[in-house]
Design a protein around this nucleic acid. Structure first.
Lengths: 202, 202, 202, 202
DNA sequence: GTATAATCGAGACGGTACGTCCTGTCTTCGA
DNA sequence: TCGAAGACAGGACGTACCGTCTCGATTATAC
């Protein structure tokens, strides 16, 4: 009477099925969009019974979240877990944001991350996980870089890095998410300049 | 073939039904959330035939968008269509953002606007309408105010107001939408200060 | 608030769908057997939504029962609602039972009636309906004929016709239902002879 | 290829499990009915793996058939394998049929035997086994008793005992199976009288 | 008295069907 | 002619079982 129905045995889980489900979920979201992606469709495409999905995940959002995390974990393996620090804060931030722009425009990432972001807006549980697993680690890198810059005297000492980073990160995020404007390298360069030196004349 | 199927006679439209549908849609989104809000449910609650909804709107997102626009139009009627201009840019921005914070925290607005924002992230058509009808007019007020400030020499002449406003608006939007952090008056005050005077020491 | 969800409006029912469902149900039972006949299969074959079946019937047994009743009603229209009465009771009974044997061996009737009988054995509700709608009316004809014969002095006056008829009807029914033996014209002739004149020597 | 998959080693079979499976199957059929009795349910109740069932039986009908045979074998051990022969055919038949009536009304036997009969109606394989293992041996006892009576001159010499027995056995069977009428001692007494002495006046 | 091989409890797996809910279209009837 | 009502074809939901399969962990002969 140890094992409950609701907690399946992880050690006997089929790795093969999990991979197939990740692949199918990502492919379907990319091909037909999130709303038309169904659990039934994922199961069929993965060659898997529906129950195998419901056994390990609670919803299609949950499946996609894990699938996307898996995808980014693979990609993240190659990158260093820190922002570059050449001593030139503006240049470093611009470089990183340019890379982010490129990633946001990569159709391979666009469909699933947009879908997850949308789901997260409306579904608090998914939203929290999305932020905790994907967004926050990225933002923390900016915090670290800004803290270093502050120590080097390139940032005012009373500035809170966690808020400061939003000055250039959030505008990009909003333009992408809500399509309030185009995103480009020039745009993010401008954001960095504005943020570092302010709008008011010196 | 006089009357086409796709263009019902607007003059005969029942105002009564439209109001009932708006109310039902907003109430349901607030009560059970957007995903569990269905066209059938709206019709039943409004005491209306389903066809009456499909005759005038194309989807539940469309219904909710109009319902929400109607709601905000009522509220907006009382406000002036411009930001205050006391001559003190920082103070004016802080005041407006404080009001925005209050509105974002108002549960009456939260459910539907969050729902629409989420739908817009994933559904380009809805997204464009949402931005055009709700977001862009608001942002334009900031553009106007910043332009006035620039003329008054309180903002550097080379600054693009459409980008500049994102430095304090987008961080607030992202914290609210994606729950990346708490929002408060102190927070938006800080955003305005950082944005106007920059992160780098003077 | 007159009409309840559970009582759909009969007057708006689609005759077309009903016929298609009857046909599909009977065809499927004949082709693949009762256990492999599914509501989903009936709906697909009839070109009908599943809900249209569940709206009007409670189970596949219920569908099949009505479909079969409809089938027999069509056939029954041609027959007279009484057994022949030539004055020769034995001959009349033999003739009717021979016809019954032929019907029981007709594959068009076999599959659905066997299915219904089986369901009725285990499902009291279906069983009662099956008996009331199909069996009992038939048996009543024997009761009438036996009563007439009793009046004519061909049957002992103290004999209960409702029990008497079972002496030749039930053996045939059991051989067919439970496959306890072959059925043929010779067999039913013998049953009539045994039943009328008894097993004991005269 | 020494050992075939399809022929498990009988000598290593767990007697304990078999008993538990019989008990679980009979209990479930009695409690929830045959259709709601599942292989999975039997396995869970018996504290047995599903494969242990599928290793030794081919279907739930097969399990129940064996379980019921086992049950009746226990009961039959106490009875003599022949009908009483007091010299009075009518009395002997009435006594046996009264006992049968009692058994048919015993809820312990009713659920499983009804379930098996129903399955047998629709599933020829099960039907044949059910008849061969349970019905035919019983009927053979009647054949023997009638043959003895025929030798004693109490039954017409040209009467076929295999058909004759159906005159009183089948009506009882049909009333029970199809609920076409109540069953009682008085009823079976009447059947015997009618069958032995016929319906026609002497 | 151990090897050793099959059975055992357990339960994940690919599937199929269930019965429910909702979509978007269509038809009927009343105002 | 529009509105309330709701039947319709269709399709996805999440659940329950099917029958197969793969896991250690007992057994219980056969060495």
């Amino acid at each position: 009477m140890a094992t409950r129905k609701s907690t399946p045995d992880t050690s006997r889980r089929s790795e093969r099925s999990r991979r197939a489900i990740y692949d199918a979920a990502l492919a379907l979201v990319a091909e037909v969009g999130y709303p038309k992606t169904t659990v039934e469709g994922i199961a069929a495409r993965a060659g898997v019974g529906k129950q195998t999905i419901y056994r390990w995940w609670s919803s299609k959002a949950d499946v996609l979240l894990e699938a996307f995390l898996d995808l980014t974990d693979q990609a993240a393996g190659q990158e260093p877990p820190a922002l570059p620090d050449t001593g030139d804060l503006a240049a470093d931030l611009k470089a990183v944001l340019r890379a982010t722009v490129d990633e946001l425009l990569d159709p391979r990432f666009e469909a699933p991350s947009r879908a997850l972001a949308a789901e997260g807006v409306v579904n608090e549980e998914v939203g929290r996980q999305f932020v905790a697993a994907l967004l926050e680690p990225q933002l923390q890198l900016y915090v670290d870089r800004l803290r270093a810059a502050r120590s080097a005297g390139q940032v005012r000492p009373e500035v809170d890095p966690r808020i400061a980073l939003e000055l250039f990160v959030s505008p990009l995020a909003q333009r992408w998410l809500q399509r309030t404007g185009p995103i480009s390298h020039a745009y993010t360069d401008t954001l960095v300049d504005y943020a570092l030196y302010g709008l008011a004349p010196r």
